[in-house]
Design a protein around this nucleic acid. Structure first.
Lengths: 159, 159
DNA sequence: GGATTTAGTACGTGACACGAATCAAATTAG
DNA sequence: CTAATTTGATTCGTGTCACGTACTAAATCC
């Protein structure tokens, strides 16, 4: 949430909670803006990002994105209509499909990822190299711990 | 974007860019989940958070949220319908309204903020106290620098 | 005073997200 | 080996959100 500590003079610390909240809004809006320039939504990009090194079923994709399966159908529909992904009938379960990224989709995601990286690095420029290293470590730590906590999810999905 | 470095053994560093991206997804999903438990959306909560210590016009509110004015009408409409905010005719400009949070809205936002803080602190627990302090400082630094860069926005809006 | 800008609304469109209902295929029970 | 249940996915209806366009009324400019 926005700057609560209005009554400060110089550079007041926002506190961990508000700082992280605002940082997440910053990152998200950067992502949204860049994706938008390629006429893609954040969710679409997130999906493509997942599909970079995975070939999940609809269901698995839904779990990755934290979305209901009923949301996935439309998501994949739209992406497929634009030639970003494909549905392939599963050979083991005749009910399910494997979702794969197409070359076009891969190009998109690479382009967006590059622009995003550039943007983030610009935001992070005011930090010292040592701090950036620390920040990277800490973010990784938080994210992986959380992933572990809420049921394993890391690694690809070829199980 | 999800865990790209799959070929690692222990706790590989995700890198700054991916680490921050995933961290932002984590924060956002926490926020979304908590807001959802109170039957509110992230945007609604964000708006209420802004209105905690501001009383902007529709237009100013839109700028705070980075949304088009046409989006604001519906947003405020829905919130007003639920008794979370009010529109008050401006005394200086007969075209515009001041948007204010109601007591009910304030209660909601306080409750959500508390739960959110608790959740974030839990996520951040694996870090040492010193690291948490550093993380807070760095997040603040990034956020405030960015705000300064893209046209001043900090502080309340009584300009 | 007339032209232009500004604040907000109305309307249509489209992406998401969800829950409930549905169907077919797979799995489990008995 | 049927019968019952579970599971993968789709459809449909609803609601939020975001945008662009068009429009009204009030300010402001000249």
């Amino acid at each position: 949430m926005p700057p609560p500590p209005a009554p400060s003079p110089a550079d007041e610390d926002l506190g961990l909670v508000d700082g992280l909240a605002q940082l997440s809004f910053l990152v998200q809006s950067a992502l949204s803006e860049i994706a938008g320039q390629h006429d893609l939504s954040v969710v679409q990009i997130r999906m493509l990002g997942i599909l970079r090194d995975r070939e999940p079923t609809m269901n698995q994709l839904g779990r990755h994105l934290g979305l209901d399966k009923s949301s996935i159908t439309g998501l994949v529909d739209r992406a497929q209509r634009r030639g970003l992904v494909t549905r392939t009938a599963s050979s083991v379960d005749r009910r399910s499909f494997q979702v794969s990224i197409t070359d076009a989709g891969r190009q998109f995601v690479q382009q967006v990822a590059a622009e995003f990286a550039e943007r983030i690095e610009r935001c992070v420029a005011p930090l010292t190299e040592a701090d950036r290293k620390r920040l990277s470590r800490m973010a990784t730590r938080i994210v992986t711990t959380d992933a572990r906590d809420r049921g394993i999810d890391l690694r690809t999905t070829p199980r």
